[in-house]
Design a protein around this nucleic acid. Structure first.
Lengths: 233, 233
DNA sequence: CACGCTCTTACACTACGTGCAACTTTGCAC
DNA sequence: GTGCAAAGTTGCACGTAGTGTAAGAGCGTG
């Protein structure tokens, strides 16, 4: 589950308690997703989720602070994964390239599938917007933390704006790429579709790197740039 | 209502009803702000706001969907103002310059004062985060709409990413600039402080225009760029 | 087994947000 | 002014969210 990476996983000691917690947590999100599929966003209560997951309403709130939060755990899992990928990149690498590389690892069926489903199910519902925005913002903070480490910012100095703006823009562009992808391909997880997602992410990061002025939209050169400045290769 | 500008002001016909509504609305936000000052974020209820504003609880909810929403009206007013400034810019002007110019108009005591107070009062409280994020995202959508009009995007075309990423990044950078400013100067509204805010906004937009790669943070040239590519000159 | 610790559960309580049906105010025509 | 319709306000009731609390069940350990 989420175990192996973000939470838990105390290296060989998955005690009974931890297993139970992880199981209930999973049961809750599963139940929430099932209800979302069945009834649509906003048409079910915390009690229904709890019942469906075989726990009490109170226990549900011990795990998640709201029904939205239960659903947003999908988004959180995805974004936490992204942050983890980001932290794996070498510290010397330019932050934007690290971001791009980290995002590449996420254009993967197993990673995006839950997110894609959640997105299609809640597409035009403002109910999800709240918690989803929070998830992205949480991710932004993480990116900010990573960027701050790597840019070696002087505490009260002038780099603060750079790092803040960079973190926010990276998130915004990642979001934009995913949004465009969803609007184009829906929940299509085929190889070509994922390739397009990758290209969108690359293009978005390239925009950030080269600047929004460097692109003349009037000219015919509007096609996706062919992998500008390959990060790994 | 939303027609001519943002709210009310139907050009010479502020009927009694509209005046009353505006007055109650104002009374509510005033009461909410007063309670925020007095009790701190999250320590007062919708009923208290209503009582303090001299209306019933039910009426409060006719105006705002939550206590947070009442407070966030300050943010909304500020951001709506920004959008309005943005729309006033000539359509031929590059979007980034328009954004920069629009933001300049907001680095003004009367505009930022309420925002600054709200910010200082809710600084380290996650309670406000929700609605505030929504306000910024709402603003992002507006910027997106404006940008879409001006970039003349082909419907299913490749410009969609550009516009989405641009809108999101503009918001992120504006947010970053304000955040840095607040963290440096608190609620200082002096002329120098506002000048610094303006410079931060200019720098943030310049980053977006020139790209985050164009800045080598190791070099000594880390000072604020001296108004790069003046928008109005 | 018995003892601590952690987690779950039931219950109670406050507050939120909304539908509804009076009631009051405003706008408008006569 | 009077009458009337539309818009706005209010009280009431209802379901739900989220939290404190205390008792109980499950787990880990000696």
């Amino acid at each position: 589950m989420i175990a192996s990476s973000s939470t838990a996983y105390t290296a060989g000691a998955p005690s009974r308690r931890e297993l139970n917690k992880a199981a209930t947590r999973q049961a809750i999100t599963d139940a929430a997703l099932a209800l979302l599929r069945a009834k649509g966003p906003g048409n079910f209560t915390a009690e229904e989720i709890a019942d469906s997951a075989g726990i009490s309403r109170r226990t549900f709130f011990n795990y998640f602070s709201s029904t939205d939060a239960a659903l947003a755990s999908v988004v959180h899992a995805f974004l936490d994964n992204a942050i983890q990928q980001l932290r794996l990149r070498p510290a010397e690498e330019p932050v934007l390239e690290s971001a791009q590389a980290a995002l590449m690892a996420l254009a993967d069926p197993k990673a995006v599938a839950p997110l894609a489903e959640l997105f299609t199910l809640t597409q035009h519902s403002p109910l999800m917007a709240n918690t989803e925005l929070q998830a992205w913002d949480h991710c932004r903070e993480q990116v900010f933390a990573v960027a701050r480490e790597r840019v070696a910012v002087t505490p009260g100095g002038e780099d603060e704006l750079y790092v803040q703006a960079l973190a926010g823009s990276v998130i915004s562009c990642g979001k934009a790429a995913m949004q465009v992808w969803f609007s184009r391909r829906g929940a299509d997880l085929s190889a070509e579709s994922l390739a397009e997602l990758r290209q969108l992410l690359i293009d978005a990061m390239a925009l950030l790197g080269a600047g929004f002025n460097s692109r003349r939209h009037a000219g015919g050169a509007g096609r996706s740039s062919p992998a500008p400045a390959g990060p790994a290769s």
